[in-house]
Design a protein around this nucleic acid. Structure first.
Lengths: 113, 113
DNA sequence: GCCCATAGTGTCAAAAAGGATACCGTGATG
DNA sequence: CATCACGGTATCCTTTTTGACACTATGGGC
């Protein structure tokens, strides 16, 4: 049973985690806490993510109702990602994770958000 | 790069998440919030986990300094798991996850922790 | 005519995570 | 003498996740 497949199962903690698992999701959400971003802006902010993975994670976040995806019919294309209300409601969780990390992973780059 | 392998990389949020990824870790930590538990007590509290997986996750939690493992030289063996101070410091994070889940995953069993 | 940028998709393969099952040693219990 | 409970290991296999890489459409600039 994958994290994805177990929506509808288990306790609330597990199910919440399943929404933000995946290697890049919380980073994406975290970046979006500062405001709307375009696809390539996210790519530049998270250099280690591949295009395919970013697309993938964004689609899942969208499917889970945590972000909104707005496509502007332009050339070149313009697609903006922003937190949905449900995504915003995760802010305390994301910040709790971040604060713990800042306080407890005391190596140099741990604080370089 | 695995979640494990990336300790020492990335932002604090990611690194924090890498400590509690794995399918059962937060459940284990959550159960331990109520107090020390033995191996088979955990198994009974989390029926879906296999012995191998539980061992695995407990070892990683121990390696990350989040729980303590105490072996009593008895027969039959007696091994107790408890949160370490570092593990206790995660309480707000775990509870943030749980509260969000309770509030936002409003299906019947979401609240059955 | 060619290249650039944007925001992707598709295919393939590797790596990692997870699960099933069987096994171990010991002492008490039946 | 066989069985049980405890807390695991070891091995094998499947599923899931992630990564590399190539490819697409369109319009504008050179």
């Amino acid at each position: 049973m994958s994290h994805r497949a177990m929506e509808g199962t288990g306790c609330s903690v597990e199910r919440t985690l399943s929404l933000i698992d995946g290697k890049w999701k919380i980073v994406v959400l975290y970046k979006l806490l500062r405001g709307t971003l375009r696809f390539n802006e996210l790519r530049r902010l998270i250099p280690a993510v591949t295009q395919r993975m970013l697309t993938h994670q964004l689609r899942e976040l969208e499917a889970d109702g945590l972000i909104t995806r707005t496509v502007y019919a332009q050339v070149p294309p313009r697609v903006e990602y922003a937190l949905s209300p449900r995504g915003w409601s995760l802010e305390p969780v994301i910040l709790a994770l971040k604060h713990w990390g800042d306080a407890n992973l005391s190596s140099s780059e741990a604080k370089a958000a």
